[in-house]
Each structure stands twice: as structure tokens, then as C-alpha cells.
């Protein structure tokens, strides 16, 4: 055992206590255990801060990563409440600091039906809310309302984004065979995807709010993995720059 001469009365060992004296402030063993525990916590904090991975895609309102990671207590309520099952928890693979914090995953779940209603709806947001299926964000605000510590702040799907939809040109079927697929163009509830002269999809970042419908329905690599990752033809990426106006 290393000697711990940190001022706090070294004579405060509990053996043979002076009957006249009140209880000592802290025993030496407690001091050592406590200080080591505190040091371990500081060490974990440091390691977690150093070994950060890529910022995970956070639920709506958690885009300010600094605020989010500082506030989130990893209670799992946003994940638990999400009616679209789009929120999952990070694991150590996403960086130690993010373990058990929420991340958005658009690759599990499916849009089963209701697509027509979605497209014919008066406002895209309403259409999205009425759509059936899981694995996308309909901006219902439940995660924000349920967050007990305010890690998820108010979110406006008209001007902010969860992340930016980015085409993976090495995956997209339309890039492989020109005009081969336009699912994301047809499905995007916010008309944020158009086609270029070669009938390949192009994302308009000003309109995209990262709802994830495109990633969800993208058929490229949705059933198998070609390149040892689960990327699809179009993926919602973290973009901390914020959505262009």
C-alpha cells in the first residue's frame, strides 16, 4: 500500500479510539479507497475523451454534440419512447464516451405501406406522421419531450436537420446502371432528392432534414454487405455545420 500523506489526519485510524474524542473525519483505508476511486473516475473520463470515435447520428435536438454528451445521462428513455424504433443505443464501438447514449439507426425496420398517403398528404410532415412502418424519423417530438435532462432540445424539421443525406456513389444502383433505381427520389417526403441529367439521384441539402426515409428504403446493400460495412446507396451522415438555409 502506498502511503497517502495528504494532510487529512494520519492519526485518525480507528484502532483504539480516544473515548473523549468524537469520531474521526475519515479513516486511512477509506481515504485511500476513496482517492483511488476518484482517480479511476478521472482516468475513465480522460480515456473516454481521448478515445472518441466518429460522432454518432443523434436523435433530433441532439445535434450540438458538446451539449448533448455533456447532458445525456444514458437513461434510455428516448430509445424506449421512439414510436418508429429509429433510436438505438451506442455501444463501445461508437467510442467509449458514447456508450449507452442514443443514436439514430435508419437501417433496421422498414416502411411497410402508407407510402401513397405519405406522398399525397397536404404537408410532408403530416404525411410522414401518418406513414406506417419503422426505422425513420417522423419528428413526433416524443424523444425531446421525454428527455429528462434536456439533452435533446427543441427541433424544427423545417430548418434543422438530424444529419445530411449523402449519396454513396460506389453503392447507388443508379450510378451503377444509369437510371436503374429512383426509390429515394420517389419516397423522399420533403422533395429533397431530384435526378440529374443521367437520372442519378441528387440531394438538395437545403430541403433535407435527415428523416431517413431514403436510407430506409434504399435497396442497395440492404440485404447483404459488399464491402464489410452496412452503408447503403444513400446514407444520413452527421453534419455539424448545420443545414444550409
Amino acid at each position: 500500500m502506498k502511503g497517502n500523506e495528504t494532510g487529512v489526519s494520519s492519526g485518525s485510524i480507528q484502532k483504539d479510539p480516544d473515548p473523549e474524542q468524537k469520531a474521526a473525519l475519515i479513516s486511512r483505508r477509506s481515504l485511500i479507497a476513496g482517492v483511488s476511486g476518484a482517480v479511476v473516475l478521472l482516468g475513465i473520463g480522460g480515456v473516454a475523451r481521448v478515445a472518441v470515435g466518429d460522432t454518432p447520428l443523434r436523435p433530433p435536438g441532439g445535434q450540438d454534440e458538446q451539449h448533448f454528451i455533456g447532458t445525456c445521462i444514458r437513461c434510455g428513455r428516448c430509445q424506449n419512447v421512439c414510436p418508429r424504433d429509429a433510436i438505438k443505443t451506442c455501444e463501445f464501438e461508437d467510442g467509449i464516451i458514447s456508450a449507452r447514449t442514443p443514436k439514430v439507426n435508419y437501417r433496421l425496420g422498414h416502411i411497410s405501406s402508407g407510402y401513397k398517403r405519405l406522398r399525397e398528404a397536404q404537408t410532408p410532415l403530416l404525411g410522414l406522421l401518418e406513414a406506417e412502418g419503422s426505422g425513420f424519423c417522423d419528428f413526433c417530438n416524443l424523444c425531446i419531450e421525454n428527455c429528462p435532462v434536456g439533452a435533446l432540445v427543441a427541433f424544427d424539421p423545417a430548418s434543422e436537420w438530424i444529419g445530411e443525406a449523402v449519396l454513396a456513389t460506389d453503392r447507388c444502383i443508379a450510378y451503377e446502371k444509369l437510371g436503374g433505381c429512383r426509390k429515394c427520389v420517389d419516397y423522399c417526403p420533403f422533395d429533397a432528392i431530384t435526378v440529374d441529367e443521367f437520372r442519378r439521384p441528387v440531394v438538395i441539402p437545403e430541403k433535407c432534414n435527415g428523416c431517413g426515409v431514403c436510407e430506409n428504403i434504399c435497396p442497395a446493400s440492404s440485404y447483404r454487405t459488399y464491402h464489410n460495412d452496412t452503408r447503403r446507396g444513400i446514407n444520413v451522415h452527421v453534419n455539424e455545420q448545420g443545414r444550409p438555409a
Partner: peptide, 17 residues
Amino acid sequence: LILGGTLLSAAVFGFPV
């Protein structure tokens, strides 16, 4: 002391360690 360490580490590293 560990309670103190908990709050200190949260303050230093900016997240609930």
C-alpha cells in the same frame, strides 16, 4: 470522496463520467 470525484470528473471532462 468518490462522489466528489464523480462531480469533478464530470466538470473536467464535460460529460457525466
